[in-house]
Every structure is written in structure tokens, then in C-alpha cells.
């Protein structure tokens, strides 16, 4: 395949003009890309969080805040109606995340959110891999990998966000809960 001339040529064209074919104008649909994306009350990382969104959620692109990496979007949150707020550029995508095919619903691929709650994403080295690992030159690799999986599973999004913040990086993966709510958005607020 790689020897054929056309695919590499097409790939080069696509590389030269990234995103051209997928430009979304104001009023168009964008998708939430990162886990625990915070919809902010204003275009600042320290602004109040209105709601926490998950990958695959559709939002309407309203406008860009000047030349900043903040985009004003409208989100259909619940029965109360849509909420407008600001999302960091890195958390948005022109295309939805990949759907996952699971053995329980092979004909109906799951969104990232449905996949997360399906229980399929709970990783543990399977019996096939364990038996295979015991035939390798370093059979202790099996126990090492099981321990590593356990360690990885213990690291949550709050720790990931904290680490990013400590390094001066944007907190793209946010905390799972709304830490504070803007008083202006509270129903019956003073």
C-alpha cells in the first residue's frame, strides 16, 4: 500500500493544509474532546465552572474570544435549556471521538461516555496474556505488568490536572466535579 503513489500524495496534501476541509463556522457543531471539560463562565482558567462535560458531547460554536484560545459555545445541558459558556480550545474538536465496539453490543458502537460506564474499560491482564507471559524469557513480566496496571488505575483525573497545573500547563483534563458555581447562574441567587 505504501508503495502506491496516490495515498502518500493525498496524505501530503492533507498535511499541508490541516483542518481545511473540517473548518467549523460560528453556528456549527463542535465536539467535546477531553475528559471532564469545564464550561467556564468567562474566558479564564480561574473562572467559575458552569458544568463539566464529557468527550463526544455536541456543542454549538458561537464565537472566538478575540485571539485567545477560548471559544464561546452553547451546550444543551438538561431540560432547563441550553447554557452558554467558554471552553478552552484544546478541549474542542471538529470531529467526534472514536466510538468503541464492545462484545456486548457489537452492532452498536458506544460513545466514550457510554463506553466508560459500560464496565468494558476496566483493564486487567487477561488469562490468555497471563498464560502467554509465563512462557516468555522473563515470566516475572506478568506480575510486573499487573502491578503497573494497578498503579495506573489509581491515578485519577484530579491528580492529572494537579500535575499539569504544577508544571504551568493548561488544566485541559479538569476535575470531575463543578468546584464552584457562579452566583449569577444559581437559580434564585441573590
Amino acid at each position: 500500500m505504501s508503495l502506491e503513489k496516490l495515498p502518500p500524495l493525498l496524505a501530503l496534501v492533507c498535511l499541508a493544509v490541516p483542518g481545511t476541509a473540517l473548518a467549523v463556522k460560528p453556528g456549527g457543531t463542535l465536539y467535546i474532546k477531553a475528559k471532564n471539560t469545564h464550561l467556564k463562565a468567562s474566558s479564564s482558567p480561574t473562572a467559575d465552572t458552569l458544568v463539566v462535560l464529557q468527550p463526544g458531547k455536541e456543542v454549538t460554536y458561537d464565537s472566538r474570544e478575540g485571539k485567545t484560545p477560548w471559544y464561546k459555545v452553547t451546550v444543551p445541558v438538561d431540560k432547563k435549556g441550553p447554557v452558554q459558556g467558554f471552553v478552552y480550545q484544546a478541549n474542542l474538536s471538529v470531529s467526534p471521538p472514536s466510538l468503541e465496539v464492545t462484545s456486548k453490543s457489537p452492532d452498536k458502537p458506544l460513545s466514550p461516555e457510554a463506553f466508560a460506564s459500560s464496565g468494558a474499560a476496566v483493564k486487567a491482564l487477561g488469562p490468555g496474556a497471563i498464560a502467554y507471559g509465563k512462557t516468555l524469557s522473563r515470566p516475572d513480566s506478568v506480575q510486573q505488568l499487573i502491578a503497573l496496571e494497578s498503579l495506573a488505575a489509581s491515578i485519577d483525573t484530579a491528580q492529572v490536572a494537579e500535575y499539569a497545573r504544577a508544571g504551568g500547563l493548561p488544566e485541559v483534563v479538569g476535575r470531575p466535579q463543578v468546584a464552584r458555581r457562579s452566583p449569577a447562574k444559581k437559580k434564585g441567587g441573590k
Binding site: P55, V160, A161, Y163, L169
Partner: peptide, 28 residues
């Protein structure tokens, strides 16, 4: 152990923004 914890924080931060954010990612 501290190295693996740090590696997983860096890796999970990146993977959470990928097109498959829901996979149970493990970095070693």
C-alpha cells in the same frame, strides 16, 4: 514507583485528549 506515577500523570493527560479518551491507559 514515583517515576511510574509521574509517567502515568503525563501520559494520561495526553491520552485524555486523544480520540480514545476512555481507554484505561497504562504507561511504564
Amino acid at each position: 514507583k514515583a517515576l511510574h506515577v509521574q509517567l502515568n500523570k503525563i501520559g494520561k493527560n495526553l491520552a485524555a485528549q486523544s480520540s480514545r479518551p476512555g481507554l484505561p491507559w497504562t504507561f511504564g
